[in-house]
Simulated assay, not measured.
Amino acid sequence: MPRDRWQTLGLAVQGDRFEVSLNGQVVFGATDRTFPGAGRVGFWTKADSLTHFDALEAEALG
Protein backbone atom coordinates (compact mmCIF):
# COMPACT_ATOMS: atom_id res chain seq x y z
CA MET A 1 0.00 0.00 0.00
CA PRO A 2 1.29 3.46 -0.81
CA ARG A 3 2.10 5.40 2.36
CA ASP A 4 1.24 8.82 0.95
CA ARG A 5 -2.34 8.09 -0.19
CA TRP A 6 -5.68 7.74 1.59
CA GLN A 7 -7.13 4.23 1.75
CA THR A 8 -10.78 3.27 2.28
CA LEU A 9 -11.46 0.81 5.10
CA GLY A 10 -14.90 -0.83 5.18
CA LEU A 11 -16.71 -2.99 7.70
CA ALA A 12 -20.05 -4.69 7.05
CA VAL A 13 -21.76 -6.40 9.99
CA GLN A 14 -24.85 -8.60 10.00
CA GLY A 15 -25.62 -10.29 13.30
CA ASP A 16 -22.41 -12.00 14.46
CA ARG A 17 -20.86 -12.06 10.96
CA PHE A 18 -18.58 -9.31 9.68
CA GLU A 19 -16.64 -8.57 6.52
CA VAL A 20 -13.66 -6.22 6.25
CA SER A 21 -12.73 -4.51 3.00
CA LEU A 22 -9.85 -2.31 1.90
CA ASN A 23 -10.37 0.00 -1.08
CA GLY A 24 -13.51 -1.92 -2.07
CA GLN A 25 -11.90 -5.39 -2.00
CA VAL A 26 -13.01 -7.85 0.70
CA VAL A 27 -9.95 -8.76 2.77
CA PHE A 28 -11.56 -11.24 5.16
CA GLY A 29 -14.77 -12.24 6.89
CA ALA A 30 -15.39 -13.87 10.25
CA THR A 31 -17.96 -14.71 12.88
CA ASP A 32 -17.60 -13.30 16.40
CA ARG A 33 -20.03 -13.96 19.23
CA THR A 34 -17.97 -12.10 21.89
CA PHE A 35 -20.47 -9.21 22.24
CA PRO A 36 -23.96 -10.53 21.46
CA GLY A 37 -25.94 -7.25 21.59
CA ALA A 38 -25.89 -4.14 19.44
CA GLY A 39 -22.51 -2.48 19.71
CA ARG A 40 -20.34 0.45 18.77
CA VAL A 41 -17.61 1.24 16.29
CA GLY A 42 -14.02 1.77 17.41
CA PHE A 43 -10.53 2.02 15.96
CA TRP A 44 -7.28 0.47 17.11
CA THR A 45 -3.82 1.06 15.66
CA LYS A 46 -0.40 -0.27 16.53
CA ALA A 47 1.71 1.93 18.77
CA ASP A 48 4.48 2.22 16.17
CA SER A 49 2.09 3.38 13.39
CA LEU A 50 1.32 6.85 12.13
CA THR A 51 -2.38 6.58 11.28
CA HIS A 52 -4.97 9.22 10.33
CA PHE A 53 -8.74 8.74 10.08
CA ASP A 54 -11.09 11.06 8.20
CA ALA A 55 -14.77 11.04 7.20
CA LEU A 56 -16.05 8.23 9.44
CA GLU A 57 -19.50 7.10 8.32
CA ALA A 58 -21.63 4.56 10.19
CA GLU A 59 -25.15 3.54 9.24
CA ALA A 60 -27.58 0.80 10.14
CA LEU A 61 -28.40 -1.44 7.18
CA GLY A 62 -31.49 -3.48 6.74
Rank of each mutant, 00 (worst) to 15 (best):
F28V: 00
Q7M: 12
A30I: 04
L9S: 15
F28T: 03
V13A: 00
F28N: 01
V26E: 03
V41L: 13
R40Q: 10
G10Q: 10
W6C: 13
R3S: 03
L9K: 15
R40T: 03
G29Y: 02
G10T: 13
D4M: 04
A12H: 12
G29L: 03
T8P: 14
V20K: 00
F28C: 01
D16E: 12
R3L: 03
A12C: 09
A30N: 02
G39L: 11
Q14H: 10
A30E: 02
D32L: 01
R33C: 08
F35G: 08
Q25N: 11
A38Q: 13
F28R: 04
Q25K: 10
R5S: 13
V26G: 01
V20P: 00
T34N: 09
G29D: 08
T31E: 01
G15D: 12
S21I: 05
V26S: 05
D16F: 06
D4A: 02
D4E: 08
F28Q: 05
W6F: 14
D4S: 07
R33Q: 03
R3Y: 02
V26T: 06
V20T: 13
T34D: 09
A38H: 07
G24N: 05
A38E: 13
R5T: 13
L11R: 08
D32R: 00
T8I: 12
